[in-house]
Design a protein around this nucleic acid. Structure first.
Lengths: 399, 399
DNA sequence: TGATTAATTCCAATGGTAATAATAACCCGT
DNA sequence: ACGGGTTATTATTACCATTGGAATTAATCA
């Protein structure tokens, strides 16, 4: 019942076609038909609309030994630019993409106020967006996507609740309107990770997916049938607070025994401390400590190996449980801790994941670590902005 | 992307209308429009098709003070009968429903062969179906739905894998064809529980739902957006094997620390044994033991109260985790253990569920115990049969 | 006749199927 | 060597079923 009307289906199919071309390079209409489950008629109609909107262009015509020549389609990077902003607890990262989703520029900033006063943070967001806009070389910025932790309400443009800073009902969009005039889409990082992955791997269309984020906190974003799943209160996927040890380590959520307490960055460092209380990584700040942990692990440092093994056990049990409930096609690990330690953690987790998961769900799932995409939250945020802009143009066009 | 074509939407809307009328008693087309999110045109078109198929009848015309009189619609119970069969580890339960889903008759049988030889079990199923058919009073039986634990493949009519009996690729439909000639739909009990609940509470259309089954084993069935979610390998919802204590009690799945090990019937009895090794319930068979546990609990027996409290803690942690990941509108407890102890267990679980779940998902969810529906698996199985018959008639009709 | 509510009909948009058009290499006969 | 027919492949068009919304018709009473 996700799609309730013909218009919903149209919208989904439109994005499907765009994703295919965006990732798969130049494609003919025929290529899209074979790759997707759409009919030729539908593809032709959607392509003609996307060309009319200026998002696709016919790039080349190819003659084969026989038959009518095919015309290949490309995303037109000049359609416009999109900015994605990842507002995290300690930093704000912003990326500028063209419509073909090539990153044009990036900006990074530490959050100056540790308490996260809304006015100050919004000021910083505005600064980053302005800097990137200045680097647009005259191309039009058509939208800005912003991801803030916690619960957000895009319709109202409000951050309803951000746990780390105790934000309540912060009207982000209204406040940003004084900083710049681009349309703003507000969302949550876990959702952004999912759309980032869905646009990156168009083969995931129609599939069930869990994107697991490993960072200071841990969580998962879910997609069912190729569609982002938000849950009833837009907060689905809080897998990091699955109880893995009843009455176990305290978690910053206030409960105890959560996966996050054992696998989040502080949890990994606690494992390290238990293995070697005097380990040099423990004297560093969190980011540097995890970097050092990764370096020590690679060097074969026994305490680092023990810490990763310990963390991996809990991660494995948690992944097994997730796979049992969700029964996905793919589980993808992302996040800054995953960038540094993902392969090691997944290797350490695999045995427990496989022993805790049931045979059938386990056989269906593919675990992997996603790396080298820059900041996937910023990318997903920009994708939201593109989707919003396109929905707008699309519905305007048919009026 | 659940619905990819107009036909899928039509099918979903058709069931939506039928569910509304089936549960909500006589309804006018207007009533259906206001209750559902369908347009008047769609409702009118679907109603006329359902009348043509013989499933709905215009039952009465009502004049109000002003305006055109309305005509109320009722499900025509004479459309046909459906049989649902719940094949469990120790018993087989079969129910006969008319198309308005009033139960006409029930049959129950213990599984004679503890090893569950396929031929013998199928023979028993056939016997029950024949007995119910004999009680149809000449009305046509239009379909039989059968639920077998484990993984089933309805398209081929095969039980791919049943854990308790070590069934492998048992061609149930083909074997049953020698017993009776009604169309057979094969499915899994957890899925049946979901459709049973969705048809019972039409307000759940479009909602996210988890149906938690408490029995010898425990598990959950999921629905997203009002649609049954099967997962990638038709095995989603194996929440009973979520790890709640790393390296905890052994579970019959081969792993350890699963919720099922602590909350399934054997787990509850183990809690009882830890509280009072000589408790009289422990000398009984499982079903009688749980019945006795429930009776002792009601009588205030300290050991029974302690056992329920202990089990409830694990159930609560598990429910909290489920709510965090799935973020559903409703969690409904069903199953034979739930029938006996559901209210007590839920009360004992509530505190832990609320402390382990995050604020937002917790605020969105409504926990409840469903009782008094007879055997909901059999009901769901019959619902599958109705859906199958209707899909068949519907597509035939438009040819 | 007007008001009011219920149900039907019409319309534009959409997707899928199937028929049709477009296009160019190849083949064959002259 | 050249021209027309053949064939293979790609893209477009026509047609039907569907939905939601708007306009219309239906049925009743004041």
């Amino acid at each position: 019942m996700t799609a309730r009307s013909a218009a919903d289906i149209r919208r989904g199919n439109l994005f499907e076609v765009l994703r295919r071309v965006s990732v798969g390079g130049p494609l003919s209409r025929q290529d899209i038909v074979t790759a997707s489950s759409l009919s030729m008629a539908t593809v032709a109609s959607i392509v003609s609309e996307l060309i009319q909107l200026g998002l696709l262009t016919e790039s080349e015509t190819v003659r084969r030994a026989t038959g009518r020549p095919l015309t290949r389609l490309t995303v037109n990077p000049a359609f416009g630019l999109f900015i994605g902003v990842d507002v995290a607890e300690t930093y704000i990262h912003a990326s500028l993409f063209d419509s073909a989703f090539d990153a044009r520029a990036e900006e990074h900033m530490a959050v100056v106020d540790p308490v996260g006063d809304p006015a100050g943070v919004v000021q910083q967001i505005g600064e980053l967006v302005r800097r990137l806009s200045d680097r647009a070389n005259g191309d039009q910025v058509r939208g800005v996507g912003i991801c803030v932790p916690g619960l957000v309400d895009d319709a109202d443009g409000v951050s309803v609740f951000a746990p780390n800073w105790a934000w309540r009902q912060v009207p982000v969009r209204r406040m940003l309107a004084e900083q710049f005039s681009h349309p703003v889409h507000l969302d949550n990082p876990l959702r952004a990770l999912v759309v980032s992955e869905l646009w990156r791997e168009p083969g995931l269309g129609g599939k069930n997916l869990a994107v697991v984020n490993l960072g200071t906190g841990v969580g998962a974003g879910l997609a069912f049938g190729g569609d982002l799943y938000r849950g009833t209160s837009n907060s689905a996927g809080e897998w990091g607070h699955t109880t893995v040890v009843l009455d176990g380590w305290a978690c910053r959520c206030g409960s105890s025994g959560c996966i996050e307490a054992y696998v989040g960055a502080p949890g990994l460092l606690r494992h390290l401390q238990e293995a070697d209380p005097g380990h040099r990584a423990l004297r560093l700040g969190q980011t540097e400590a995890i970097t050092e942990l990764a370096r020590s692990f690679s060097a074969g440092d026994p305490a680092a190996v023990a810490a990763v093994q310990a963390g991996g056990r809990y991660l494995g049990a948690g992944l097994g449980s997730l796979v049992n409930v969700v029964n996905p096609d793919a589980v993808v690990l992302v996040g800054w801790v995953s960038d540094l330690l993902g392969d090691a953690l997944l290797a350490a987790a695999r045995h427990d994941a496989e022993s805790h998961a049931l045979v059938r769900p386990l056989a269906a799932v593919d675990f992997s670590v996603r790396s080298g995409v820059g900041n996937p939250v910023a990318r997903g945020a920009a994708t939201f902005a593109l989707e919003a802009a396109l929905t707008h143009d699309h519905t305007e066009g048919t009026r």
